[in-house]
């Protein structure tokens, strides 16, 4: 599903965010990326989602080489992903419903079915009653769940989440991790970055640990 072959990412200015990363993830796996902040977790996720391009090595996602991908093909690749951002990236001038509707709108989804899709996604994250609310009216945990609803409404093959429990207390983190587990059980490939050791001990998933841009043994 996802395979990194000797991937490096050097930012302008000479800083090496990632060095010689090689690994692969099979369909339906649940993989966590662990490491301290600054270890390159976010960069790695950005490379998978083609938000950034590698400066060396090659990345294959669903048999497509991201380094050689045409810019115009990137949007169609991204529609296979559900992205959950640490800072949520919600649109504050749109309602909860409209935020979740956005990916369907972009994917030219049949508008007659879109409404029920959106409500199904909101139901999964427990926000069904808040459709007409605006994101500012939601708590931090609810905003994160809204972000997850937007990520899954497309029924993506791969869910990529960057520190999804970063700012949440243990109870909320537990709820969100349970959600992720249930997505994984229906076949979604999961790639999650976290620095939450407790979470890793509890879930015991496959873990890729980064240390200063390199794979830790």
């Amino acid at each position: 599903m996802i395979s990194f072959q000797a991937v490096g990412k050097r930012y302008p200015g000479g800083f090496d965010a990632l060095k010689n990363i090689t690994f692969s993830i099979e369909r339906g796996e649940m993989v966590f990326i662990a490491g301290h902040s600054g270890a390159g977790k976010s960069t790695l996720l950005k490379l998978v989602a083609a938000i950034e391009r590698p400066t060396s090595g090659s990345i294959l996602v669903r048999d497509q080489n991201l380094g050689r991908m045409k810019r115009s093909a990137v949007p169609y690749l991204r529609r296979n992903f559900g992205l959950v951002f640490q800072d949520h990236k919600l649109l504050f001038n749109r309602t909860v419903f409209e935020n979740v509707f956005l990916p369907l709108q972009i994917g030219a989804f049949d508008p007659r079915e879109a409404g029920s899709r959106v409500r199904a996604a909101l139901d999964k994250v427990g926000l069904l009653g808040r459709e007409h609310a605006y994101p500012v009216e939601l708590s931090g945990g609810e905003q994160q769940r809204l972000c997850i609803a937007r990520a899954i409404v497309n029924r993506p093959a791969i869910l990529i989440a960057d520190e999804p429990t970063g700012n949440l207390d243990a109870e909320y983190s537990g709820i969100i991790m349970d959600m992720f587990k249930s997505f994984n059980q229906v076949g979604v490939t999961l790639l999650v970055s976290t620095h939450d050791e407790a979470m890793l001990r509890k879930l015991r998933p496959r873990v890729i640990t980064l240390h200063q841009g390199e794979l830790a043994p």
Binding site: P75, K89, L91, P103, I106
Partner: peptide
């Protein structure tokens, strides 16, 4: 700006 950024991140084409 934010809307454009988010739309691009979740797979919007430039045409869209």
């Amino acid at each position: 700006k934010d809307e454009i950024e988010v739309a691009k991140l979740i797979g919007a084409t430039n045409t869209f």
